[in-house]
Amino acid sequence: MSKSLRNALLALALPVFGACAVSPETAPPVPDPLKGTQWQLVDIQYMDDTVLKPDADGKYSLRFADDGSVSIKADCNMLGGSYTFTSPSGLEFGPLRSTMAFCGEKSLYDRFTKDMPFVRSFVIKDGKLHLALMADGGIYQFSPLP
């Protein structure tokens, strides 16, 4: 993981702790920046320096709907459920239902189903979406879909 990306993610964590001192009545509502967006996976970067990339464009994607639902394409399977955005950069997925086709041994489907419950925050930087796993587990990097 690049040092600048790691620093950006750490910088996002600081306002979360500072926000605890602001009462909900005085804090202006922050619109959900993910609503209505769609992204395709670029790579997954784990803290042990393992980097995994999809074997083809478009096989792995996220679509955040305006109603708080998320659709995930993970190779030959589709996952769906809800997500929760908390200002300024919190993100958690609710239970995700999934089709159960076998996509092949090189598929990242199993990674997605294992990692998505551990997403806790995100940052949109340089036009890319970065999902951070809890306990500094790793980063999923996505580029926008047209």
Rank of each mutant, 00 (worst) to 15 (best):
R6G: 05
R6V: 14
A8E: 11
L10K: 14
A11W: 11
L14Y: 10
V16Y: 07
F17D: 04
C20F: 14
C20V: 13
V22L: 15
P24I: 00
P24L: 02
E25V: 08
E25L: 11
E25Q: 09
A27L: 15
P33V: 10
T37F: 06
L41H: 03
Q45T: 10
M47T: 15
D48P: 05
D48M: 09
T50D: 07
L52G: 02
L52I: 05
P54G: 05
A56Q: 13
D57Q: 13
D57I: 02
Y60V: 06
Y60I: 10
F64I: 03
F64P: 03
D66A: 15
G68T: 05
S71L: 14
I72S: 01
A74Y: 00
N77I: 10
N77M: 03
L79E: 08
Y83E: 02
T84S: 11
F85P: 02
S87H: 08
S87N: 09
L91N: 00
L91D: 00
E92W: 01
G94W: 03
P95C: 04
L96Y: 02
R97Y: 11
T99Q: 03
T99N: 08
A101G: 09
F102W: 10
G104E: 04
E105G: 13
K106Y: 06
D110N: 10
R111Y: 11
R111Q: 15
R111C: 03
F112T: 07
D115F: 00
D115W: 01
D115Y: 00
M116G: 01
M116W: 08
V119Q: 04
S121T: 11
F122M: 07
I124R: 12
K128I: 06
L129D: 05
H130K: 10
A132Q: 15
D136W: 02
Y140E: 04
F142W: 02
S143A: 15
